[in-house]
Structure formats: structure tokens, C-alpha cells
Computed example of a mutant assay.
Amino acid sequence: MIVENLGFFIYAFTSIFVIVDPVSGVVTFISLTSGMTCEEKNEVAKKAVTLACVIALFFAMTGSVILNLFNVSVDALRVVGGLLLFTIAFDMMHAKVSRESITEEEISQSQEREDIWIFPIGLPLLTGPGTISTAIVLMGGTDTFGQKILILIAIIITFVLCLYIFLFSRKIHTFIGYNGMLVFTRLMGLLLAAIAVDMAAKGITDIFNLAN
């Protein structure tokens, strides 16, 4: 049981961390906070990560209610979510900013805004449709209370790491370098693509088995 839960936790944490992908978001975060002092930058990071974490936790805990309200099955969301994650992964493998998260035009228009911790950093850079659908699918894919708690813990740990990555964003960028960021983004994209295919395949298989 312990080994099974540990394996499930690793899968849940990996899925959430890869889709949030805070390391790749460092460049965007630095760009949006370039004119701020260190204190202001840290305040933006704390507010944005807190907001993103709350949104992810909210949809994780209420996702089944939302699906039932619209009469949508978890397997249907698995298929759609898998396709969405694959499009994000495709952009990442080409070292591009995912259009699901934020566009270059949105980055440019956000430079002068005071509430960038809400949009575009908190939503959708950190918690976009991909993160939300992944959280709902993970929670809907298990009936075990213990595993549901593990998913919530995985979400919280992901955003705690995200906070520290943003707080030390300039040092990380200096240490890894721009090329290092591109390599990391491509590797995360490859891993995300595998998760996306697995998610979509499971959804299709379950739908097919249910129909028969």
C-alpha cells in the first residue's frame, strides 16, 4: 500500500509540476517584473503563486461537482485534457511559450499593469486550462480518500517550489542561462507529451470499454 501510494504521489506530483512548469516561466516572470525592486518582485511572486495554488486546489476539490453539473464524464475530460496537454507539450518541445498559458502580445500589454500577479502570472501562466484539467482528472480518477489527499499535497508542494523558483528567478536564470532554459523546456515538453498521450489513451480505452 505504501509503495502504491508513493508511486501515485510521484505520478501526481510529476504531472502537476510539469504542466505548471515554473522553471520555464522564469523568463516571463523576469520580463514582467523587470522594472520592479526586489521587494516588489517578491510580493508579486507571493501573491501570484498563492492565487494560482488556491485556484488549482479549488478545481481539484470541486471538479467532480462541475463535471456532474454539465454531465461530463472524467474519461471525456481525460481525452480533451490529453489533447490540450499535447498541444502545450508541442510548443514546449519547440522552446516556445505555450499559447495556452500566455501569448507574446499579452506579455507586452501587461508590462504597465499593476495587477500582473493576477493576470497573466497567476492565471493563466501558472494555473491555466491545462493545470485545471489535470487536477480534475487526477481527482476524478481515484475513489480513495488517501490518494485524493496526496493529490492536494502534490499541488501544494508544486506551488511551494514554484514560489521559491520565482523568488530566486534572477539567480536561477543567471546560473542556468537562456540556453539552459530552452533545454529544460524541451525536456519538460517531452515528458508532458508522454503524460498527455497516456491520459488521452486511458480516456479513450475507458470510453470504449464502457460502450461495450
Rank of each mutant, 00 (worst) to 15 (best):
I2S: 06
V3Q: 13
N5A: 07
N5R: 08
I10D: 02
I10F: 08
Y11M: 15
P22A: 04
V27R: 07
T28W: 07
S31N: 11
L32S: 01
S34L: 09
S34C: 10
S34K: 11
S34Y: 09
E40W: 06
N42K: 14
E43Y: 03
V44K: 00
A45L: 08
K46E: 11
L51R: 07
L69G: 06
N71L: 14
S73I: 03
S73T: 11
L83V: 12
T87R: 14
I88M: 15
I88D: 10
M92L: 15
M92S: 08
H94K: 14
V97C: 11
S101F: 09
S101A: 11
T103F: 03
E104D: 11
E104W: 02
E105D: 12
I107M: 10
Q111T: 07
D115E: 13
I116M: 04
P120K: 00
G122N: 06
G122I: 03
P124H: 04
P129S: 03
V137C: 07
G146T: 12
I151A: 08
I155V: 11
T158A: 08
L161R: 10
C162N: 12
L163R: 08
Y164L: 15
Y164N: 13
I165M: 10
F166G: 00
L167C: 12
F168G: 12
F175W: 14
F175C: 12
I176G: 02
N179R: 13
V183F: 15
L187G: 07
L191I: 09
A194L: 15
I195F: 12
V197C: 06
D198C: 08
M199D: 01
A201E: 11
G203E: 01
I207Q: 03
L210I: 10
